[in-house]
Simulated assay, not measured.
Amino acid sequence: MSALTSAATPRPGAVLADLLPASSAARARVRDVALVVGGAALTGTAAQLSVPIPGSPVPVTGQTFAALLVGAGLGASRGFLALALYAVAGMAGVPWFADASAGAGMPSLGYVFGMMLAAAAVGALARRGGDRGALRTAGTMAVGMAVTYAIGVPYLALATGMSAGEAVAAGLVPFLVGDAVKAALAMGALPAAWKLAGRRG
């Protein structure tokens, strides 16, 4: 079986990015670097889809959805590195946080840190088949969102002086409906991508 054929055939323990062919170790490294940079850029682009929430310093954006898709598509290590690049570049001044912002002083920065860990968690679950069926994908996305909030909400409270209840009210509750929509989108997109890969394989 050729390298191209084996790379294009879904197998246990694989994530979608593993289906991209690489004929040598050097080309695989180049591929992985490109995927990491692309994952960071996708997250930064999605972050510009931003809707402010009255009474909350945290807007609804597309970055969480992008971060979880990056984790599922790239796997734990590459997903984590993509979100780490996104975080470090944004803190260094690249204006690709929500609303073209940058820097390290935002009260919503905890969500970015949470997305780094969420991408790793989602990627690990994806390697165990967590993105190959609708219900499993919903569970995988729920884990990723929970990890994001577990870091983001306490950070919001510390950064703003809110109480725990106020931080939950401002930084969690307004986003639950949107998160359900994102999970539903992922339930369709990721299993469909695997089915398409299977047909091409």
Rank of each mutant, 00 (worst) to 15 (best):
M106S: 11
M162S: 10
T160V: 03
G171D: 07
A159S: 14
V112S: 08
V153G: 12
L135K: 14
G171E: 09
G110A: 11
V177K: 13
V181P: 09
V173A: 15
A167P: 13
G152Y: 04
A159L: 05
G178E: 11
V122R: 06
P154F: 00
D179M: 13
M141V: 03
Y149L: 04
M115I: 10
A126K: 05
V177C: 09
V122S: 06
A180E: 12
G110S: 07
V153C: 15
L109Q: 01
A126D: 06
G171M: 06
G105Y: 08
G105H: 06
A138N: 05
A134V: 02
A120S: 04
G152S: 11
G133D: 15
L158V: 13
G178F: 14
G130D: 04
A120Y: 06
S163H: 08
G133A: 15
D179V: 02
A134Q: 05
G130I: 05
M106Q: 14
R132Q: 08
V168D: 08
L135V: 15
A119P: 02
A180T: 10
G123N: 08
V143M: 02
S108W: 15
L156N: 07
V122T: 07
T148K: 01
G139N: 02
G114T: 03
A157E: 03
Y111L: 11
A183S: 14
G144L: 05
L158S: 06
M116C: 13
M162N: 09
P154D: 01
E166T: 07
A138F: 07
S163E: 04
V168L: 15
A118M: 02
V173R: 08
Y149Q: 10
A134L: 08
G178I: 07
T148W: 07
Y155C: 00
A159W: 05
V177G: 11
E166H: 06
M145L: 14
A167T: 09
G139Y: 05
A104E: 06
A180K: 10
A157M: 01
G130N: 04
S108N: 10
V112C: 07
A150G: 11
D131I: 13
V112E: 01
R132C: 04
A121T: 09
G105S: 12
G103S: 12
R128Q: 12
L158T: 02
L156C: 01
G139K: 03
T140Q: 00
A183I: 15
F175Q: 07
K182Q: 10
A180D: 10
L176G: 02
